[in-house]
Design a binder for these strands. Sequence first.
DNA 1: AGTGGGAACCTAACGGCGTTAGGCAGCCGT
DNA 2: ACGGCTGCCTAACGCCGTTAGGTTCCCACT
Lengths: 233, 233
Amino acid sequence: MVSADNGSARSPRAGAAAKAPAITREALAAAGLAVLRREGLDALSMRKVAAELGVRAASLYYHVQDKEQLLDLLADSVVWDARKLATTGDWEHCLREAAHAYYRHLHANRDAARLMAGRRTPGPNLLYVLDVMLSRLHQAGFSDAVAARATLTISTYVQGYVLQEQVPKAPHREPDAASELSAACRTTTAAQYPNIMSLIAVKKSGDTKELFSFGVERLIDGLRAQLPGGPEN
Amino acid sequence: MVSADNGSARSPRAGAAAKAPAITREALAAAGLAVLRREGLDALSMRKVAAELGVRAASLYYHVQDKEQLLDLLADSVVWDARKLATTGDWEHCLREAAHAYYRHLHANRDAARLMAGRRTPGPNLLYVLDVMLSRLHQAGFSDAVAARATLTISTYVQGYVLQEQVPKAPHREPDAASELSAACRTTTAAQYPNIMSLIAVKKSGDTKELFSFGVERLIDGLRAQLPGGPEN
DNA sequence: AGTGGGAACCTAACGGCGTTAGGCAGCCGT
DNA sequence: ACGGCTGCCTAACGCCGTTAGGTTCCCACT
């Protein structure tokens, strides 16, 4: 579930393990994802991840330098499955499928977008996906500059969209008082900003994927005009 | 700097203040923004905001229910200036200017995008901006459905873009060891993902606004094709 | 066979965090 | 004069990330 190469990670001397490690980097990521799914990003603490593994918090620092590094690990794990993406068909199809696959994987993990938002570097799995998209666009005839901008723009849009979709869930307060108050607030809103209601209508339409697709299709439409020749492969 | 109507906020009995309040909601927002600018979102705590006002942390809870509510306040303050936006010229011009204005205001405040990312509701100032854009698009001939989707898509893109741009700053570690390690990591990256370098080239080109504009223009291009008749107004 | 060393966990503790409870000064209308 | 309210205060709770300093146990080497 995690990247194959642990790269610069601390590892036991090759071929000689002193003690069977109960906690691997993969197990750490899995435990983190479990806590994330159950309690959300705000409640994810070192202590809870450790408890998920039947271990105390301090032990995690043997495998990970920081909480930040643990979050990096989780962020990359989320994108892991997105590596399988289509490279057949025309560039529009590939781009669309990649965007939707990325969307699905972020959408499937609670608070995934907010998790990604805090990372300093994209992580190897995401880098791989970007790399593939980039080469596909380049192959389709886009210039280096346009292909790079297109790739970044699409991935930015996907992350931004899921971010707005995955509103952080509160533990929930009193439902009666809250609904009454929000109802009053809503009428005020309607009075002050008459057009906003249609936004709410779109957001409430249930099919969250439809709005997402709208943006992707508009971007693809806009990108098509950037092809040097006519549309090819 | 904050919304004019405090709405449902607790307020002294109209026309009778028991004691001159040293802390207003505006001062609270200003202090929060000051801490945000100086130390970043991760280091923003109730205690520090309170200290900025010459006050202890517990006192803030008289003016604000939660830290969440304080962040809501800050988030809305950031968008405050974006209310002044153009409604003259054709819809493309309006949309472009609104997007750039929104971008500028997020860009100008440290960690502003990550701040917005956590909010549950858009806040009145942002709602106003969305409302104006919506009415302008509607006036230009877009259908209700398309105008709503376009507005949401653009605002999503802007927030997503700034989010990736405003990478959280670490307090800074050892510069020597860090640069050496990152250099090694970079060559590994280049070997594994050959196309990624062009992405880095685009990101490093300095003019961050250019990449942002690319996305906006592509979206506008894509939206133009959604107009029922030809381009009008 | 004995021993050194390192891997992988532990307990204890630090300071900072968000938040709540309860107290006290000063100004208000009566 | 005085009760009540506003607007601050101090003290404390429990949780957090992180560090310091063990302890145990297996492996490699002599």
